[in-house]
């Protein structure tokens, strides 16, 4: 490992150790915002691992999240909770691989449409299953508290960052960078582009499913309308874009301010929340096309006097 690598690893470790101390402040309100931030950090960072370099916009987060939530809801009566998290991860990765095999050979726009439909597809399958079996919502009654969920999410976030860091150092990461710059070139130098994309897409799939599995005890009651809310997919995209997908730490720079903005808007304007959030979306896309990281880097290069 080179010196800067050791440096960034240790900085990362310290930051995560600090983040893990939040529950000791014993402010429940901060903790509940912390859970939201941790959740979106996990989702947006893993999303950007795939969508950042490949430029494929995935709207499938809700599908994987719902799959994970249902894994917990269906399994909690039969299996220990800790076993359900890896099971959810495997299911998410398998689903992502299937979707990837079917769609990642196609160009970007087909992929976007398919992922948007995927959440609805999975939701309809579960609804159909309910209609056949006659069961309604599922109860997840556990002793898991908000603190536990926060720690689990923080640990998962650390894992996502580590995965991203390792991918960036690996052959896979190198292949992805070339692929992101020019897919034609990548194919000509012998990179199996479809396999690379499928492998990479399995990461956000697995992570979102595990996140859903972790959040299910917080929701207590799981039904399709709750587990597969399409808003989740859009929020993840907007937060990642606000932060910027060019850097591993980019999405978190978007997640934190956006969560506070969201909280401020919902708290102050209960009757216009959705309207103002829509305006915020528009403002972000128009004013910050490269996200906060793009802004920071432009400022840095201007300081150095180099052409931006």
């Amino acid at each position: 490992m080179t010196r800067p690598e050791v440096q960034s690893l240790s900085i990362g470790t310290v930051l995560f150790a600090l983040a893990a101390c939040l529950p000791f402040l014993s402010d429940a309100y901060l903790l509940s915002i912390g859970v939201t931030i941790a959740m979106y950090t996990v989702l947006a960072t893993s999303w950007a691992l795939f969508s950042g370099p490949t430029h494929y916009i995935s709207l499938a987060t809700a599908a994987f999240f719902g799959l994970g939530a249902y894994t917990t809801a269906l399994g909690i009566e039969h299996l220990p909770y800790w076993l359900l998290l890896p099971i959810a991860g495997v299911l998410g990765a398998v689903l992502a691989a299937l979707v990837g095999l079917a769609t990642l050979r196609l160009s970007g726009v087909y992929f976007v449409i398919f992922t948007l439909g995927l959440a609805e597809l999975v939701r309809q399958i579960i609804t159909w299953g309910q209609n056949m079996s006659g069961t309604k919502g599922l109860y997840v009654l556990t002793a898991i508290t908000e603190e536990h969920i926060y720690w689990q999410l923080t640990a998962l976030a650390a894992l996502v960052f580590l995965t991203g860091w390792l991918i960036a150092r690996s052959r896979l990461g190198f292949a992805v960078r070339i692929l992101g710059d020019d897919e034609e070139v990548a194919r000509h130098v012998g990179i199996h582009t479809a396999r690379v994309k499928v492998l990479l897409f399995m990461v956000p799939g697995a992570v979102a499913a595990i996140t859903g599995a972790m959040l299910a005890p917080r929701y207590v009651y799981i039904e399709p309308a709750i587990a597969f809310t399409p808003m989740l997919s859009f929020q993840v995209v907007i937060m990642a874009l606000l932060g910027g997908t060019g850097r591993l730490w980019g999405p978190i720079v978007g997640v934190i301010p956006f969560t506070f903005l969201w909280e401020a808007i919902s708290g102050t304007f209960p009757n216009q929340t959705t309207l103002l959030l829509g305006l915020a979306f528009l403002a972000i896309v128009y004013l910050l096309p490269n996200g906060f990281t793009g802004l920071l880097e432009a400022a840095r290069s201007r300081l150095k006097g180099a052409p931006a």
Binding site: S32, A225, N271, T273
Partner: peptide, 13 residues
């Protein structure tokens, strides 16, 4: 009064 947008995460918040 608060709007939870029919989203359990928002109800909790």
């Amino acid at each position: 009064e608060y709007d939870d947008q029919t989203n359990p995460a928002q109800t909790i918040a």
